[in-house]
């Protein structure tokens, strides 16, 4: 059982009205932006289930647009996020969609960055501001963002995991959970490492420097 902190009870600090429809939505798109890895110029949000039905009343639309610009779920500017995005020239669109047998608060985010690269992220807001990301660019993944999370896109080759875990052990970072997801043998893969300790820029830099088989490295801070 989770060891509840007093701040799980009195917290999080957030912009209302709903921890799942507002705070969780902001967090999901903020994580998506991290995965995109750059400023976003165009984005389409495919809203499923309860998100599709009630997004306007809960400000889910504003929260999503806030997160995609990197705002935190407790940013006072969240309610004006759509106006701010328009001023920056960010194009955004909402589409009601059936994403299949998924959590009622699920969104598919397809975004284009300043480099022209397109990234697709699917995730759910599972309650209390908590999230679960389960698909990135068509690859099945799974992480919640409850822990500091390292997200490494790499080529599926022997030794890849050992190289990364060696760096983490050098910095005395304990791995809480680790999973590897791949498209097919020898192709694109994701390593998702959730840790007990916070991860600094040096660790990210060293991981990025491991070689061309390591395509991208992102850090998602804990909730």
């Amino acid at each position: 059982m989770k060891n509840y902190s007093m701040f799980d009870v009195i917290g999080p600090r957030m912009i209302g009205p709903s921890s799942s429809h507002t705070a969780g939505a902001a967090r999901l798109s903020k994580v998506a932006r991290k995965i995109g890895g750059e400023e976003i110029t165009e984005v389409t949000f495919y809203l499923h289930g309860s998100f599709a039905k009630t997004y306007k009343g809960h400000g889910t639309d504003r929260a999503l647009v806030a997160g995609i610009q990197g705002m935190e779920p407790n940013d006072e500017n969240l309610r004006n996020a759509m106006e701010i995005a328009l001023e920056k020239g960010i194009k955004f669109e909402f589409v009601e969609a059936d994403l299949g047998e998924v959590h009622p608060n699920t969104v598919k985010i397809i975004m284009k960055g300043i480099s022209g690269k397109t990234t697709e992220v699917i995730g759910s807001s599972v309650g209390g501001g908590n999230i679960k990301v389960f698909r990135i660019n068509g690859l099945d993944v799974e992480f919640t963002g409850e822990y500091p999370t390292l997200l490494i896109r790499h080529i599926d080759k022997p030794g890849a995991i050992a190289k990364v875990s060696l760096i983490l052990s050098e910095y005395d970072i304990n791995i809480a959970f680790m999973r590897v997801f791949r498209q097919s043998k020898g192709k694109d893969a994701f390593m998702i490492i959730e840790t007990d300790n916070s991860i600094n820029e040096e660790v990210i830099g060293k991981t990025k420097a491991l070689g061309e088989d390591f395509i991208s490295v992102y850090l998602i801070d804990a909730l």
Partner: peptide, 20 residues
């Protein structure tokens, strides 16, 4: 304030954040 997208502290939830 919560319904108007203002800042609150969930206590324990957003929907019950006024009582405490």
């Amino acid at each position: 304030v919560n319904a108007a997208m203002g800042q609150i502290v969930a206590a324990p939830t957003a929907g019950s954040s006024g009582i405490l």
